[in-house]
Write a protein that binds this DNA or RNA. Structure first.
Lengths: 202, 202, 202, 202
DNA sequence: TATGAATGAGTATTCATTCAT
DNA sequence: AATGAATGAATACTCATTCAT
C-alpha cells in the first residue's frame, strides 16, 4: 500500500527475501552515514558502497536520494508514535503528571537509542517535502498529545502541545549535541521544563 | 587579534573604506541569500554577483566560503551578546523575574529582526568549526546568563542556563518556522516556559 | 537460414507457439514504445514490462536491444516489399503511369498504417548496421523498382529509382511529421512529384 | 541581444576575445563530433576535451548540452537563409526557372560544404525544441520561398513550397548519405525534380 | 587590486546486460 | 525456460577555488 510515482516513496515493495535484506541494508547504511558524517557525507555512491550493493541496486529500491531519507524519517516517526501511544495508554487515568512523565520518558528513550541519528533525521525532516504518510504520522502524534492535554483540562491544548514539543526538542537536541547520555538526569530536567510550562508543581 | 591564516577568519582586516564596503556587501549578499534560498543557494558565485563584485574579489576578502558564514555567525553572536548585556544591565537589582523578562525580550527581538537569517545562521553554526572569537562570544553569553542566575541564587546555574537557552531556542525556532511573528504572544509563552523551569510563579 | 551468432538477428527461431507469442509480444511492445516515446523511451526494461515478460526472457529471444530494432526493421521491409510486389504485379502491362500510381499508393498505404512507427523505424534503420537479410530485402525492393522503370524505357533506371525513392521519402516524412493524414491529397502530390521527375505529363 | 534564461540559448555572450575563442572552439568541437560519430558520440565531456577546455568551461557558455546543438542549428539556419536571400535577389526578375535554379544551387552548396554536419544538424533539429530565433529563421526561409512562388503565379504557394522543400531534402539527404559529392550531377537531378513538380518543362 | 575565465573532482541518476535462483 | 535482483560504466551537470591578465 506504499508504492506510487512520487520521488519520495520507495520504488518497489520488496517481496523476496533478498530484496527486503537489500532494502534494509541500504537504509541502515544511510542511517550510519547520517550518524557519522551528517547529511553532507550522504552521497548515493557512499550509501551503496557501505550497504555492499551497487548504485544501480540502490536506485531499484529508491527513486531518488531523498526517498531514502524520507523512508528513514517515516520509520522514525512510526516508531516514535508507537512509543507514545504505548506511554499514553499506560498512564491513562493516572493524572496529568503521570501522563507527562510517560511521554517525556518515551521521547527520551527514543532519542537516546541512536542519538546522532535521531538528531540528523529530525533535522533532515525540516528540509524534506514529506510524503503523506509521514505527515499523517506527525499529525497523529500531535493529536495524541493534544488529546492528553485536553483530557486533563489543560488550557489551549493545541498551542500548549506545540510549545511543549518545541521546548522538549530544544532541550534534548542541545543535550544530545553536548554528548549527554545520562537518561535519568535528562529526564528530570525535561520533566521540570514541561511541568513548569504546564504550571504543575513538580 | 582578528586576522590569521585560518580558513574561518576574514583574510584582510579592512582598513580602507572601500575594503570595508566591499566586505560588508559580500556579507550582506550572503545574508540575503541565506534568507531567501537557505544554505543550498549559497554559492560563492551567487554571493559575489549579488554583492556586485567578482568571485576573485570575494576570495580576496574571505579565504573560503565557510569564512563568510563564520563571519556572519560571529557578527550575530556579537550583536546578540551586546543586546543581552544591555538587557541584563537594565534589569540589574530588580529581581530575577525582571532579569528573565529582559533577556527573553532581548532574545526575541533579536530573532524577529531577521527571522529567516537568524534561523539559518543558528543552523549553520552547528555544522561550522567556529573560530576562537565566536567561541569566546558564546562563552561570554553563557557566563552572562550563568552570572545572572547565580546572583539570584538559582541552583546549578550552569546547567540551568544551558537548559534555558536550549528550551528557548526550541520554542523560538519552531515558532519562527511556523511563521509566527506576534512578538507579545511569543514573549508570553517564552516567559512562561522560562519562569516555569525556574519555578517562579509567573 | 535466419539465425546466427550476430547481435542483430534473433537468438532463437521460435518453433513452439509460446516462444512465437513471446517474441511477438516483445516486438509489439517495442513498436508501441517507438510510436509513443520514440527511441529515447525504448529501454529494455520498459519493453519487457510492456510485453509482460521479464528482462531475462527478453534477452533469451534477442541478444541485444539493437536486435529488436533490427527485427522490426526487417519485418517492415518485408511487408513493404510484399506490398510493392503486389502493386507492381497488378499494374503489369498497363503503362508506366499506372505502375507509378500503384507503387505510390502502396508506399503511402504502408506509411499511413502506423505512421509514427514507420517514421521511427526508417530513422533507426539509418543508424543500424543491418543484417544481411534486411539488406537483401532493400536490394530486392530497389531492383523491383529499377525493373519497372527499365521495362518502361526509363533512362538511367538505377539513378532514377534512387531519386524517386528519396524524394518520395522526403515528402512523406515531412507530411507525416506535420501530422497530415489525408491519403488522397498526399497521393496526388506524391504522384505529381514522381510523374514530374519522370517527365510524364500527369 | 541573445542571452536569456532558456536552456537553449547560450549563457554568456562572449565579450572578451578569449571567451569568443573558447565558445567557438566548443561549437567547432561539437560540430566535428557530430560529423564523425553522430549525436550518439556527443557527450559534454567529449566535446569539452576535443575543444581543449574543461567541462566546467563548457557549462559557462552553454547551460545544457542541447544549447550547443541549438546554437549550431541556429547558425546553420542563419547561413542558409543568407544564402537563399542572396540567390533569390540575384535571380529577381529573371523568371521562375532561374529563381528555382538559384535556390537549388544555394541549397546544394550549403549541404555539400560540410555534408555530414548539415545532415546531422537537420536531423537534430527535428528532436530539438527550437528557440524563437531559429523558429523565426525557418519561418523567414519558408516565406522567402513562398514569396518567390507566388510572385511567379504558382498555385497554392504554401503547400508547394512545403513539398519542394521536403522532396529536395529527401534527395539531398539520400545522396549525401550515399556519399555522392558531384555537385553538377546532383544539381541537375534536383532541378529536374523541382521543375517536374512545378510542371516547368526543364 | 580586481576581474572573470578556467578548472576538475564530485554528484545524482540511467540503463544495457548478466546471472543466481 | 523464466525471473528479476544486481551490476557498474557512463552521462549531464555543479561549484569551490585558482590564476592569468
Amino acid at each position: 500500500m506504499n508504492a506510487s510515482k512520487s520521488r519520495l516513496t520507495p520504488r518497489k515493495t520488496p517481496r523476496q527475501e533478498r530484496s527486503a535484506a537489500t532494502c534494509a541494508a541500504i537504509l541502515e547504511a544511510a542511517a550510519r552515514i547520517l550518524e557519522t558524517s551528517g547529511s553532507a557525507g550522504l552521497t548515493t555512491n557512499h550509501v551503496a558502497m557501505l550497504a555492499g550493493v551497487s548504485v544501480g541496486t540502490l536506485y531499484q529500491y529508491f527513486p531518488a536520494k531523498e526517498a531514502i531519507l524520507a523512508e528513514l524519517v517515516r520509520q522514525m516517526r512510526q516508531d516514535m508514535l508507537a512509543d507514545f501511544v504505548g506511554a499514553v495508554r499506560e498512564a491513562e487515568g493516572k493524572g496529568l503528571t503521570r501522563a507527562v512523565d510517560a511521554m517525556v520518558s518515551a521521547s527520551l528513550r527514543h532519542h537516546l537509542r541512536r542519538p546522532a541519528l535521531a538528531q540528523a533525521l529530525e533535522h533532515e525532516e525540516l528540509e524534506l517535502k514529506l510524503d503523506k504518510e509521514t505527515v499523517q504520522l506527525k499529525a497523529d502524534m500531535r493529536d495524541l498529545i493534544v488529546g492528553v492535554l485536553r483530557d486533563h483540562g489543560v488550557d489551549q491544548p493545541e498551542r500548549t502541545a506545540f510549545d511543549l514539543m518545541s521546548l522538549s526538542r530544544g532541550i534534548v537536541d542541545a543535550a544530545v549535541r553536548a554528548g549527554e547520555s545520562d537518561f535519568d538526569d535528562l529526564q528530570a530536567r525535561l520533566r521540570r521544563a514541561v511541568a513548569g510550562y504546564l504550571g504543575i508543581l513538580a
